[in-house]
Design a protein around this nucleic acid. Sequence first.
DNA 1: TATTGTTATACTCTATAACTATA
DNA 2: TATAGTTATAGAGTATAACAATA
Lengths: 145, 145
Amino acid sequence: MTTAEAEVTRGSALAHNASFLLTRASVLAAQRDNRMLEPLGLKVRSYSVLSLAIEDVPPTQREIAEFLRLDPSQVVALVDELEGRGLVSRAPDPRDRRAKVVAATAQGRSVYDEARGRVVDVMSHLDPDDAATLQRVLEQLAFEE
Amino acid sequence: MTTAEAEVTRGSALAHNASFLLTRASVLAAQRDNRMLEPLGLKVRSYSVLSLAIEDVPPTQREIAEFLRLDPSQVVALVDELEGRGLVSRAPDPRDRRAKVVAATAQGRSVYDEARGRVVDVMSHLDPDDAATLQRVLEQLAFEE
DNA sequence: TATTGTTATACTCTATAACTATA
DNA sequence: TATAGTTATAGAGTATAACAATA
């Protein structure tokens, strides 16, 4: 009963609630991204870890956990999987040998490049001015604490 | 090591990825909302169901499921809980007696009003023009399929 | 003593299939 | 036969506590 659903959609107070809209938009984006990444054996989570491991100064697991708002124990599993596939490597941080630096391998870089091409840009259908505002405001909302 | 975390935050490609920002912003908002709703025995999910049940034309469970992008079986559990607390009632839809309409009770309305006052508006710290743009663009992103 | 990574565990959330009652 | 709601269940995601190595 699509018409009835549409009525609920348009009329309800929820449909204009910012938190709700934020959640629904991000769920839709994540589902799309997961579908696009599936052929590469990645999900949004593992893609996120891989994309951090690409950086010139690769992060420790602790930094990954903080940045992705995950528990350190979840990062262990994600890195285990990527390491098992040869996409990243773990190495003790010379400055603090308790910490492990997670860096992408050559193969990891290659998979990342392919993945990045597949992940749809949420902004691509937007008016450029709107896209710029969205980018700026989301960075504000995503990192305020 | 907060400084290192900040470097990763600012420098990484991920930090500028729209999907990622969307997800991080919505997770932060949901966590805040959950904390604010906890004293009322609600979470974002049950609050969402309650707020739909408030509407003048209350929805069926199927409509709730489609709108919230949940499986119908999850809606059963959410409505069970709210009904058990006397906040909503289930009634067969006269037009299709297979379907059940979920409507808020007087007590449900009262709890909803209190909840709505507690849920922080994501927009409240934003520049008014930015807030208006965000609202419009999020509605676009949240309901495009 | 505190912190990083790890393991184990439990809890929540999500997804699927099968059943019932209505259509 | 198809759909709404329900139930049961398994899988994914999340959160917590305890432990070894290092600081």
